[in-house]
């Protein structure tokens, strides 16, 4: 077997080596600090952090507010849908539990207000337009990306289906660690809200790098192709909610979140049950393990 009796006398324990380790640790530590400082400067120049908002869907008990989603949907229909597709959402989803929670009848009515190309060819081999049904998907404003770009000065208005999850901003150290415990998953929503509120005159009177771009405080690089899409009072609300840009931007961001993550409420509810189950299970197993180990004696093994 191995050499078993090698002795230690503490003082002799090679103090030069220890010093080397200490100084190395110091170098690494300082480097880390420098780097962290550098990051903040780098990202500050690149993208301004959006303010953090309160969302009903944040956290372990998070869920959507159907009223808010319905308002957001109204904004989508009346404003956004002229450029932005919602291709992965079907009309049936409007009646889904945990989402907008329209009744099936309401969803059918909404579907019928759209003209949809039938996905099946008729007996002449054509795809006739007809009123939408529950199984149909939201029709897209443009047939393909090229057509969308051609109609929008070269810019492509992204599909809303996954957009809320596709946008984020750099959190930096140590926030990205704190976010694990804070369950902060709403960077995309905060960004969308900030973006809609972020249209302003260029801070230092800069000129757009090419015509047709608009200055936005929160857009990375500041120059965005989308003109300010919505202003106070543009969409009418029937439930007494204030018709302000601030409210609109929250409602549309919530609607986009639902579109990107329709099963969020079901997920968080199941999470609660699973956590309860596992914590009880861990406790039970721990006591079983303790009980069995405490019964061990060399003689019984």
């Amino acid at each position: 077997m191995t050499r078993q009796t090698i002795m230690i006398d503490r003082p002799a324990m090679t103090s030069p080596a220890r010093k080397a380790i200490r100084s190395l640790a110091l170098i690494l530590g300082v480097g880390l600090g420098l780097a962290a400082a550098d990051v903040d400067r780098a990202t500050a120049a690149e993208q301004i952090h959006p303010p953090r908002m309160d969302w009903s869907f944040w956290g372990p008990l998070g869920h959507y507010d159907p009223g808010q989603l319905q308002r957001g949907f109204k904004i989508y229909r009346e404003v956004c849908s002229s450029c932005h597709a919602l291709s992965m959402i079907a009309f049936r989803n409007l009646a889904d539990e945990g989402g907008l929670t329209y009744s099936e009848e309401q969803a059918k009515t909404i579907a019928a207000e759209y003209q949809v190309k039938d996905p099946q060819p008729d007996d002449k081999g054509e795809f006739p337009e007809r009123p939408g049904r529950l199984s149909d998907y939201f029709p897209s404003p443009f047939p393909n990306e090229e057509a969308a770009r051609a109609a929008n000065g070269g810019a492509y208005p992204p599909d809303f289906s996954t957009l809320a999850k596709a946008r984020t901003y750099e959190r930096g150290f140590p926030w990205f660690l704190i976010d694990i415990f804070g369950q902060y998953q709403e960077q995309g929503q905060d960004y969308i809200h900030a973006l809609l509120n972020g249209y302003q005159e260029p801070e230092h009177g800069e000129k757009p790098p090419r015509p047709g771009l608009h200055y936005n405080r929160y857009f990375p690089g500041h120059w965005i192709a989308m003109a300010k899409p919505i202003s106070d009072g543009q969409v009418e609300y029937t439930d007494g909610t204030p018709t302000t840009l601030e409210q609109y931007s929250k409602d549309i961001a919530a609607f986009m979140t639902w579109a990107a993550e329709p099963h969020l409420a079901a997920r968080k509810q199941m999470g609660l049950k699973v956590m309860f189950f596992l914590i009880v299970f861990a406790g039970l197993l721990f006591y079983v393990k303790k009980s069995v180990w405490s019964g061990w004696k060399p003689e019984t093994a």
């Binding site: 999850k165 984020t168 976010d179 998953q185 999470g271 699973v274 596992l278 721990f286």
Partner: peptide, 28 residues
């Protein structure tokens, strides 16, 4: 049994990510 205890504790950690921050480790 000892493995079992550790496994269930690990599953709690796993479940926390899956149910509460499922996109934290991914990329937008």
């Amino acid at each position: 049994l000892k493995d079992g205890v550790a496994l269930v504790v690990f599953m709690i950690f796993f479940a926390y990510f899956v149910f509460y921050i499922p996109n934290y480790l991914g990329h937008a």
